[in-house]
């Protein structure tokens, strides 16, 4: 009986030691953050693991704010963000001994999207702002059908929300009737199923909804790159310090600059950077 117990205890100890040793060596990259950057991160992960079968890259899409927090707590290797890190976050990182290094992986145009049945084709930034503050309540006021506008926004944890706030809202507060949802995909879904809705999403999420021109400019790769499209923004990946050359993390974070990486970004709907 005693020998059995000793053996079991020994096996457990060996197992745990081996487990932790293997875990230390495991090649893994944990990516957390923006739902906008999600399609790029997921496609990069799949591409990279295709040629590096021993690496496990996990991607979660919980919002830019969560990505930043996750990086500050050293709980992820790459924080994907659709807005730059705020000073307060950088300060918190410094206090936690984390050095966030920024990489711009792609450009994105924030698209104002409506249901395809909506006859409107263009909105100015001021009109969009007025819709979100609640000043414009009915599509009729914009020359559309007599329907109350259903205003959909991302939640405040979102980088897309903050970009929208900076680029469109101009320090004005969103109205009380705005409906907040948790991801770009959710906005798209909501707008697709609601004829009177308006929302804003990244370029990869405009399938099935109608993307309006803003100030008369259509969001295309060309107008986004030339900054002619008024609400364009970069997409980021943040790491803790500069990753060592030759590591999977470094290769993953620089994928955006490779020809294949650029192709992937383009195919997901975003605009590669040069």
């Amino acid at each position: 009986m005693k020998t059995v117990k000793t053996m079991v205890a020994g096996l457990v100890a060996i197992g745990m030691a081996a487990g932790s040793a293997l875990a230390e060596n495991a090649n893994k990259i944990v990516v957390d953050g923006s739902t906008t950057v999600g399609p790029i991160a997921k496609a990069f992960a799949e591409y990279y693991m295709g040629s590096h079968a021993n690496v496990n890259i996990t991607v979660s899409e919980s919002g830019s704010g969560n990505g930043a927090k996750s990086l500050l707590n050293a709980a992820c290797d790459v924080a994907t963000m659709s807005r730059p890190m705020k000073n307060s976050e950088k300060k918190a990182a410094q206090d936690a001994g984390i050095l966030p290094i920024e990489t711009i992986v792609a450009m994105d145009g924030l698209s104002a999207v409506v249901h395809p049945s909506n006859p409107l084709a263009n909105l100015t930034i001021e009109q969009i702002r007025d819709i979100y503050t609640g000043k414009i309540k009915n599509w009729k006021e914009l020359g559309g059908p007599d329907q109350l506008i259903v205003v959909i926004s991302r939640d405040t944890n979102s980088g897309t929300y903050e970009s929208f706030e900076t680029l469109v809202m101009n320090k004005e507060k969103m109205g009380e009737k705005v409906e907040y949802v948790g991801s770009n995909g959710a906005i798209r879904q909501r707008v697709m199923s609601t004829p009177a809705a308006i929302g804003y999403v990244g370029l990869a999420f405009v399938d099935g909804v109608k993307s309006l021109t803003v100030n008369g400019v259509e969001a295309t790769p060309a107008t986004v790159t030339s900054k002619k499209y008024p609400i364009a923004r970069p997409l980021y990946m943040y790491t803790n310090g500069r990753p060592k050359p030759g590591t999977p993390l470094q290769e993953f974070i620089t994928l955006y600059a490779t020809p294949d990486g650029k192709k992937i970004i383009e195919d997901t709907g975003f605009v590669p950077v040069n």
Binding site: A23, V30, N56
Partner: peptide
């Protein structure tokens, strides 16, 4: 599990990897 374990995409894990890695 949203904040503690779950991710959108990831590989199937080996038993020892469960100690350190998240999973769909």
């Amino acid at each position: 599990i949203i904040f503690t374990a779950a991710v959108s995409v990831g590989k199937p894990l080996a038993v020892w990897e469960t100690l350190t890695q998240p999973t769909p």
